[in-house]
């Protein structure tokens, strides 16, 4: 019972990733693409946490935390570059 619910959650997350990648390809402005990459990284934080649950290893959560730090810095640095040219 719990496993089928997790499988359904996985399918929903996979569809969300497909939509975000579609916006990454189609995006009309540069800001669209950066926002799509931001969404992809936030979704992948929860995907790493789910994989840590499936593989039953605690240390994968450190990877999710580092990923959060790096994605935040990437978006803020890109925003600052767009605004005033580094």
């Amino acid at each position: 019972m719990a496993d089928t619910i997790l499988l359904l959650a996985g399918v929903l997350i996979f569809l969300a990733i497909v939509f975000a990648v579609t916006r990454l390809i189609l995006g009309r402005t540069i800001v669209d693409r950066v926002a799509a990459v931001d969404l992809l990284t936030v979704i992948s934080i929860s995907m790493i946490a789910l994989y840590a649950h499936i593989a039953d290893r605690f240390i994968y959560l450190d990877v999710a935390l580092v990923y959060g730090v790096l994605s935040f810095l990437a978006v803020v640095a890109t925003a600052r570059y767009l605004e005033r040219g580094l």
Partner: peptide, 16 residues
């Protein structure tokens, strides 16, 4: 090495 890279990202946030 990994910890040193994360320290550098903290400095990057300070500079930004």
């Amino acid at each position: 090495f990994q910890g040193g890279a994360v320290i550098a990202s903290a400095v990057l946030l300070m500079l930004l």
